[in-house]
Design a protein around this nucleic acid. Structure first.
Lengths: 361, 361
DNA sequence: GGTGAAAATCAAACCGCTTTGAATAGGTTT
DNA sequence: AAACCTATTCAAAGCGGTTTGATTTTCACC
């Protein structure tokens, strides 16, 4: 009788804050309970059910820190936000990239840890992040030319995937990238085919690898048609609306204005459009515009015929892909480096048309 | 002699992967080393220096999981991204808000953990997040009307701060909010003072608390001047450029079009401007526009005289503030609820002017 | 030189979980 | 019935730190 009431007493326990309490409530050892919850085969099915049910009833949820300490797995992926003291702009694609990646993580039961790292002591910060055991893998964003992070992470032996590539690094490593060069070459060729000869390039910051590749594609297309690139028409900065507006306005005021503009982001392209219309010109008629489109959700172009002619590649999908690659590597670290090169889709919209001055020339 | 070479041998050790190895290399106990590193007073200053120096030399960095397990502090703050299955849009302010918050965390040595939570089993997910021990506090974003998360987190006993407020909740809790009602009332009054009577409101999603408060402010300003709100002029959706464009175009095509538009975000306002100019009208002359401006870095308006008349309030600053509040609460949990109500700055730009039809009427 | 308080160091317990190796129960085989 | 599997369950030893309570040093003072 007293045994019964004891048993009932422990069943009446409101919550199990740890394995020990749960095991006590069940009258089992921690070992068995742990195995039951983690799906090990050497536990009787009836027991497993009873354990699961009780765990649910007592609101038990395991302590991730302790789990991590015991298993060596943190169940979290690190994303690093590098901070240059001067330039505090957040990247407009940040939100969508993160959304894509985290949708993948949550599917696998992983969390995402965001860390700010001052670029000054990057090396030390990455080292600490890895040794802290907080994370099982790292995503590298915004790779630069000959980016030193790649060899650093390699030497630290932590699984990592780069979103983008780093020119000048011979070593192989895991990356997911858009074929930026090809994409911008095609876009330039489209404009050339329409008869445009004065094509401006509004590029992103050119110490970032993707911007360099885009410029390469642009230059290659021009030179294949025997056109000398005009430095006046090549501008580079952070890809804001303001940048697109400012530079386009300046160029349109010049003596030999461009008849077409190739923009690196939709935000910039919106600035380009504004500068064009401000001058009383019509985009797609007087001045053609092609832009890269990261398909950012809050800039979605939902019209039937898209406003902008664009090279499209969803950065959210890229985030998902990068994350998935990292997940497989984390779970099976011995695989050799994986790469994925995504092609963009060239979508023709209302912002491009034949060059008007062609007839004159 | 052999003693010496032993000593040198242990000094030659490449790396100390844990406290034990570091302690061995130093010939000290783990206790002393731990205390030396954590700045406890009962350790000789000379010893502390020697420990620090050796730790640096051997690239020692403590394991955060173990530290967390031992101390009960995780040194991380959780941000939750709620996911409605239908609506997968990322919030444009996400990046800047996160940037602000994380700049605060990193100052305090904290990390940021992002978790996606399906709104279906929100309760369970929050509970797990708290009991996992991964985090010391939570930031609640995008509060809705009578948001259930607030009482849930309260009952879980985890420190949390809400970015925004939740109407209909009597209980006190920690929040940082912009005075949205007042801000939109003032903006509406400005337009009324300019003679506008047909003022459109392009609001955010009205199940979110901030949007409700903005509508309240708008309505109150109208009714104080005896103006009946026109439901045709009140639209609500996600604050995209497309939304601003679409709704403004529709309204301008109507029989009794608005002479002014109040927009909830700069992105929408850009769409409003486009629709106005598309019709051959001039913003600030034919149609006035006032917008809320979250001062998102990539939408910065860097002209001397700002393009848009706006109610300004930096969401990055808000992020920093929310994070700072949470930091103090986490470090001293017994304080009673704190609140911070931020006023916006009304900046008059080029997008507003007197109502032209006034003279006619 | 002996004494006692203060200063510095240490051994061991603990945080909550996993996992190894041993033990027990239950059922077969001979 | 003894011997031997096999299926379950368990006690205890980590994982890498912090912290308590005890122990040793150091040093001023009588």
């Amino acid at each position: 009788m007293s045994f019964n009431s004891d048993a009932r007493g422990s069943n009446r326990l409101q919550n199990a804050k740890n394995l020990k309490q749960l095991a006590e409530a069940l009258g089992l050892s921690q070992t068995t309970v742990s195995r039951a919850l983690n799906g090990y085969p050497e536990v009787k099915e009836a027991t497993r059910l009873r354990v699961r049910e009780t765990a649910r009833r007592l609101n038990y949820s395991p302590n991730a820190r302790a789990q991590g300490l015991a298993t060596g797995r943190a169940m979290a992926i690190g994303h690093v936000i590098p901070v240059w003291s001067e330039h505090e702009m957040t990247n407009p694609i940040f939100g969508d990239f993160v959304a894509g990646a985290s949708s993948c993580y949550s599917k696998h039961g992983y969390d995402m840890v965001l860390t700010r790292i001052e670029v000054d002591d990057e090396e030390n910060a990455y080292r600490q992040l890895v040794f802290s055991g907080r994370i099982d893998g790292i995503i590298v964003q915004g790779p630069r030319l000959r980016d030193s992070r790649i060899s650093l992470l390699k030497s630290l032996g932590v699984p990592f995937v780069v979103h983008g590539r780093s020119s000048g690094i011979e070593d192989n490593y895991n990356w997911v990238d858009v074929n930026n060069k090809r994409s911008f070459k095609r876009a330039t060729e489209l404009l050339l085919d329409l008869g445009h000869r004065r094509i401006a390039l509004l590029n992103g910051l050119e110490y970032l690898d993707f911007a360099l590749r885009r410029r390469d594609g642009y230059m290659e297309a021009l030179s294949e048609r025997g056109i000398e690139p005009d430095l006046e028409l090549m501008r580079s900065a952070e890809m804001t609306e303001h940048f697109g507006h400012r530079e386009t306005r300046a160029m349109l005021q010049g003596t030999d204005p461009p008849t077409a503009v190739l923009a690196s982001s939709k935000l910039s392209a919106m600035g380009v459009r504004r500068a064009i219309e401000e001058r009383g010109l019509t985009m797609g008629h007087d001045v053609s515009v092609v832009t890269h489109d990261d398909v950012i959700s809050y800039l979605a172009d939902t019209d039937d015929v898209p406003v902008f002619t664009a090279t499209r590649s969803s950065v959210r999908d890229a985030g998902r892909l990068v994350a998935e690659m990292l997940m497989t590597i984390v779970k099976k670290p011995d695989v050799r480096p994986r790469n994925a090169l995504l092609e963009t889709e060239l979508v023709v919209g209302q912002s491009t048309g034949p060059c008007l001055s062609r007839r004159l020339g």
